[in-house]
Amino acid sequence: MSVADLPKIELHLHHEGAAPPAFIRQLAHEKKVDLSRIFDSNGGYAFENFVHFLEVYEAATSVLQTPEDFARLTRAILQESAEQGVVYTESFISPDFCGGGDVAAWREYLHAIQEAATRAEADFGITLRGIVTPVRHFGPEKAKQSALCAAETAGDWVVGLGMGGDEGQGHQGDFAYAFDMAREAGLRLTTHAGEFGGPESVWEAIRDLNVERIGHGVRAIEDPALIDELVARQITLEVCPGSNVVLGLYPDIAAHPLAKLRDAGVRVTVSTDDPPFFHTTMRREYEMIAAAYGWGEDDFRALNQTALEAAFCDDTTRARIQKTLEST
């Protein structure tokens, strides 16, 4: 069996960022919105750097305006992920884009997303759980609104709180109130750090937010003391190699620190981040990693086992996904 054919678990997927370009173009056409500026000549998303990527991302998201739009998006995402062999995924979903942070509106969007996910699970065999996601560059007050949405809908489906956005805006500790609110509601915690923010942003995430997972976290390789801390705390990194290369953190997969992090004892997983933006898929990630590091089937099975252990789902769901991993 090719490693790319293995069943896969993905823990770092942005819901809106996984929208296929064709889906967004169709939605823009239906709503008579001109988004031609965000696409290249081949129909893909076009951006020049990380800040521009965020602008294009938010422009694409602007045509997702109703619960039904998000239901359609959810099905499109899950169908594509299932085709890549993903059997369980957690996606980052922001109330800022689903009702503007209003709890009542958020419930309507969430209901539509969950219904679509349930149908997709029956049709495609993929399980989705949601991580509510404040957007860092929208500021701490907006993050509190998102955290309230998360706390009010916490349960078997909304399983965590994360934070994405521009790492250059403020500090992790500025969002402690939002994370404390989510923690008190029983939600699990992750945050983006150690991508553009460097090792210090990972230290902040550990010290000020007390998260159990880190989105990206790859810049930790630059600080041996931080590596020791990650290993001691058994913090899991949601690593997105293809994304890191496209955004210029590393010149290619061979130069990426994924293998060094794993060899140092850090718990690592692999995800796509915003796959159509970065021209990647989970199959492509596996193929690139196998070619760069010589990893074989046992390495990828161990990678998925780590991801399952780090997943925020309940134990019943975890046991079911475990059987799926073991049956192939």
Rank of each mutant, 00 (worst) to 15 (best):
D315Y: 05
D69W: 11
R75M: 11
K142Y: 03
I93G: 03
E48L: 09
I24A: 08
Q84V: 09
L128I: 08
P276E: 02
E10H: 06
A46R: 10
L128M: 14
L110P: 10
E204Y: 06
L54P: 08
S146I: 04
R267L: 15
D40T: 01
L187T: 06
A225L: 10
R284N: 09
G197N: 09
A310S: 13
K323Y: 00
Q169N: 04
T328R: 13
S201R: 05
K144I: 14
T66N: 07
A264K: 13
S2G: 00
F23H: 12
A60C: 13
E108I: 00
A225S: 11
I227P: 09
E48C: 05
A205K: 04
L6D: 04
F50S: 11
E152M: 15
F138R: 15
A28G: 02
A104C: 02
P199D: 02
A259G: 04
A259W: 05
C313T: 14
S94Q: 09
A319T: 08
G197C: 09
I214D: 10
S81W: 01
V3S: 08
L249C: 13
E204T: 03
L226I: 03
T280I: 12
L11P: 09
A307F: 02
A220M: 07
L73Q: 02
R119I: 14
D298F: 03
E108H: 14
D314Y: 08
A264W: 10
H137Q: 15
G162H: 06
E30T: 07
V245H: 08
F50Y: 13
G101I: 02
Y88T: 09
C313H: 04
F138T: 04
H256G: 05
Y286Q: 05
G85D: 04
E90K: 10
T281K: 03
F47R: 00
L54Q: 10
I321Q: 08
V132P: 05
T61V: 14
P95Y: 05
L187Y: 03
L303K: 10
D156Q: 15
G165P: 14
E195W: 01
V51S: 15
Y286D: 07
R119Y: 13
G296F: 01
A150H: 02
W203S: 12
A185Y: 12
H216A: 04
G242Q: 01
T269R: 12
E204C: 06
E167D: 10
C149R: 06
E58V: 08
L258C: 03
A46P: 00
G186K: 14
T328W: 15
E10D: 08
E297T: 14
E167L: 12
A4M: 11
P276W: 01
F277S: 10
H52V: 03
T269L: 06
Y286G: 02
D315I: 09
E238F: 01
V218E: 14
R318M: 12
A150P: 03
M282Q: 15
F175Q: 03
H14C: 11
V202F: 06
G296C: 01
V202G: 10
E10M: 05
V87Q: 01
Q172E: 11
E141W: 00
E285K: 01
A112Q: 10
P134T: 12
P275M: 02
Q114F: 08
A46K: 13
G17E: 09
A150W: 07
A116H: 04
R129D: 07
R72N: 11
S36A: 14
P20E: 13
